[in-house]
Amino acid sequence: MPSLPDGLPFPATAAEARLLVPALAERVETADRTGEVSVIGGADASSTRFDPTRTVHAAIVALGWPSLSPLGRGGATTTGGLPYVPGLLGFREVPALAEAWARLDPKPDLVMMDGHGLAHPKGLGIACLLGLVLDVPVIGVAKSPLVGEVEGTLPDDAGASAPLVFKGRRIGVALRSRRGANPLYVSPGHRVSQETALDWVRRCLTGRRLPAPTQAAHEAAGALRLSARAGPGP
């Protein structure tokens, strides 16, 4: 079973998870420790908010860099974890993502997570927790804001960005990934600075709203969910 840093078990209740948040948030690193990147990963998890079985379908993909060609994928489905609680999504979905990571070959040098990093009320979005658990650099790439306000005007040009500010502090950026598209919200997850996180997401844009790694992970998680719904074959 996957565990938190120092071998701590994942919490069984939301109350236990809330107690762990401050100490885990302090362990998040925002200095660059990416090293050389030859394999870049994308991670995503799919679940239904009020599913009584608390099923999570998670996928992590590996793409070659700079080709962005697929190299491998790992998937996992878990049940019975934490319920959906705002602000604690990582504790619900990271166990499945960690299992998917264990089944992935090759392992990425850097991962883009479909979700928030530091752009979170307590500074511990799912991208942060994933980085701490996997012990790898992770970037948060979310499709909608959780906290904060965009400072200034975000131009409509592809690649344009504007600071995302919360309580007077910059926690990430809003990024226009393509002209006319709703912005993405990019923030460090672990071992990546804000500048480097933005740079990597821009480099992985291929004309779609999502960068290639999270787009591939989104499709892989969706396929896993559909496969589970279809059930075993004859």
Score class of each variant (00 low, 15 high):
residue 1 M to Q: 13
residue 2 P to D: 08
residue 3 S to V: 15
residue 3 S to A: 15
residue 7 G to Q: 09
residue 8 L to I: 07
residue 8 L to E: 15
residue 9 P to I: 04
residue 12 A to Y: 00
residue 13 T to N: 10
residue 25 A to D: 01
residue 26 E to G: 10
residue 32 D to C: 12
residue 35 G to A: 06
residue 36 E to V: 14
residue 36 E to G: 09
residue 40 I to H: 04
residue 45 A to D: 07
residue 46 S to E: 07
residue 47 S to V: 05
residue 48 T to N: 13
residue 50 F to H: 15
residue 53 T to Q: 14
residue 54 R to F: 04
residue 57 H to N: 14
residue 58 A to R: 09
residue 58 A to G: 12
residue 61 V to S: 03
residue 66 P to T: 03
residue 69 S to R: 15
residue 70 P to G: 10
residue 71 L to A: 08
residue 71 L to Q: 14
residue 73 R to M: 14
residue 73 R to F: 05
residue 77 T to A: 11
residue 77 T to K: 13
residue 81 G to Y: 11
residue 85 V to K: 05
residue 86 P to H: 03
residue 87 G to C: 10
residue 88 L to N: 06
residue 90 G to T: 11
residue 96 A to M: 09
residue 96 A to K: 13
residue 97 L to E: 08
residue 97 L to C: 10
residue 101 W to M: 12
residue 106 P to M: 06
residue 107 K to V: 15
residue 108 P to M: 12
residue 108 P to Y: 11
residue 110 L to M: 09
residue 111 V to M: 03
residue 111 V to Q: 01
residue 120 H to I: 06
residue 121 P to F: 13
residue 121 P to A: 13
residue 124 L to R: 04
residue 127 A to C: 10
residue 127 A to I: 12
residue 132 L to D: 04
residue 134 L to C: 04
residue 136 V to H: 12
residue 140 G to L: 06
residue 140 G to I: 09
residue 141 V to T: 15
residue 142 A to P: 04
residue 142 A to V: 10
residue 143 K to L: 10
residue 144 S to Y: 06
residue 145 P to S: 10
residue 146 L to P: 03
residue 147 V to A: 04
residue 150 V to S: 06
residue 151 E to R: 15
residue 157 D to C: 06
residue 159 G to C: 03
residue 163 P to Y: 09
residue 163 P to H: 01
residue 164 L to A: 05
residue 164 L to M: 08
residue 166 F to N: 11
residue 169 R to G: 00
residue 169 R to Q: 14
residue 171 I to W: 06
residue 171 I to A: 03
residue 174 A to S: 13
residue 177 S to N: 02
residue 177 S to C: 01
residue 180 G to D: 09
residue 181 A to I: 08
residue 182 N to W: 02
residue 183 P to D: 01
residue 184 L to F: 01
residue 184 L to T: 02
residue 189 G to V: 05
residue 191 R to C: 06
residue 191 R to V: 03
residue 192 V to T: 11
residue 194 Q to D: 14
residue 199 D to R: 15
residue 202 R to F: 03
residue 202 R to E: 02
residue 205 L to I: 05
residue 206 T to M: 12
residue 207 G to S: 00
residue 207 G to C: 00
residue 207 G to E: 01
residue 207 G to H: 00
residue 208 R to N: 11
residue 213 P to G: 04
residue 216 A to W: 01
residue 217 A to D: 02
residue 217 A to N: 01
residue 220 A to P: 01
residue 221 A to K: 03
residue 224 L to Y: 05
residue 224 L to Q: 02
residue 227 S to V: 00
residue 228 A to S: 13
residue 231 G to L: 08
residue 234 P to W: 02
